[in-house]
Structure formats: C-alpha cells, structure tokens
Amino acid sequence: MAMTMHVNIVSAEQEIFSGTVEQVIAPAKMGEVGIYPRHTQLLTPLKAGEVRVVKPGGEEEFYFVSGGMLEVQPHVVTVLADTVLRARDLDEAKAMEAKARAEQALQDRQSEVDYATAEAELAEAIAQLQTIQRLRKKLGK
C-alpha cells in the first residue's frame, strides 16, 4: 500500500475537503509544489490557482483557491484557503465575464489602485478558467 497523509482544505467559511491522500500539488507563491507524505515542515503563502489532491488509487480532485496558506507537517497537510469553491461549481460564464471586466479595466488605466485590483482579478479569472478546462478534459467533454 502506498504511503498516505491527511489533508484538510479549509476556508474561513467552510471546510472543503478532508481526507487521506497520496499527494498534494499546490500553487505556492514561489512556484508549484508537490507534497508527498513525510515532507518536512513547510509554511508558504499560496497564489490563485488549483490545489490538486491525488487520492489512494490515483483518483485526482481539483479545488480552486484564490490564495491562502499552505502548512505542511510530515503526515498532515493543511490548506488555509482564502475562498475555496468546489471546482465543479465554478461558473465559467462568470469567470469569462470577470476576465472581460478586468481586461477592460486594464485598458483604461486611470488610477494605480484600479490597476492593481484589475490585475489581481485577471489572475484569478485565468486560474479559474484553467481549472475548468482541465476538468473538462478529464471528464472527456
């Protein structure tokens, strides 16, 4: 039997995932990290993207996070997500709309603050879209 560890994905609003997995892949701030059991203790911020968990038996699940924190202990991994939605619940149309809005806001760059928010929104929208496309591919649609 392959080695496993426990993973908790929680946001301030709800618990998203809790279970035993073989591997976790998360979008850490300094680049994507893959965590196997008995990894050394690690603490890092996350950027917008998808957290992938590989369950025993090779089944994968995706969760979109808008950012957050990753805490790794040898047998427990905790993802403190800023806003986690179940990937299948993501509304693709909404993501497209958000992207379009962000791009429009980028075009008329009036104030510094607006520019920064728009950039953040854009990054988030793109990450959401990627997750959806991956899910689509996986489901063979």
């Binding site: 850490a28 701030k29 203790q41 690690l42 603490l43 890092t44 911020p45 805490e71």
Partner: peptide
C-alpha cells in the same frame, strides 16, 4: 521549525 517560503516575516 518550519521551512518558510519566501520568509518567516511575510508568512
């Protein structure tokens, strides 16, 4: 102790 990326302060 944890490994911090990028550093403890930011985390």
């Amino acid at each position: 102790d944890y490994i911090y990326e990028p550093d403890a302060r930011e985390v």
